[in-house]
Amino acid sequence: MKISVIGTGYVGLVSGACFAQMGNTVTCVDIDEQKIASLKEGHLPIYEPGLEEMVLHNYKAKTLHFTTHAKEAIASSKICFIAVGTPMGEDGSADLQYVLSVAKTIGESMQEYLVIVDKSTVPVGTADKVRQTIQEALDARAVTIEFDIVSNPEFLKEGAAIADFMRPDRVVIGADNQKALDIMHDLYAPFMKTRDRFISMDIKVQR
């Protein structure tokens, strides 16, 4: 599958490398040009056992790409992961400005049906905000393109991130329709060969 991952922090980089390792074609996107340039030279911004080897291997095999051009990466992918930071705001709440700014870019860039996956740690209700932001951007372009929002929190532990990602205890998917759920299940099935640990749930219960 062709995948784009927006954000090359801990979660983005590990997810991108592991999806590529499992045979997908992954493009990791970051707005930080210096970060992308050094990733292309094989310098990782974080230390995580096994990650560097996996990134280098897949980068050389051209299954893992790095770019600052979000538009092209999003336009050519079937699944787009939002993996940017959600730092703590002054009042303790999660700051969603980066997540929503990526959502806007997605709306401005997508060309055909796309599954948008929230991998960042975000509070309940964020999927609605992301959906709305994308829809507004599509409306501004005066185009109609179908898309689905999926929540897929990442449970990896720093220090054991590769092992956790390649053999997860469980994969949690929040979705509101079967099509998106099926695509996510296809993507994660190779990571759960011995036993299906796919847990699907609602995005948010409507009241």
Partner: peptide, 11 residues
């Protein structure tokens, strides 16, 4: 942990 506990409390 620090960030998520506080964010959940805030929510």
């Amino acid at each position: 942990f620090p960030k998520d506990v506080q964010a959940l409390a805030k929510t």
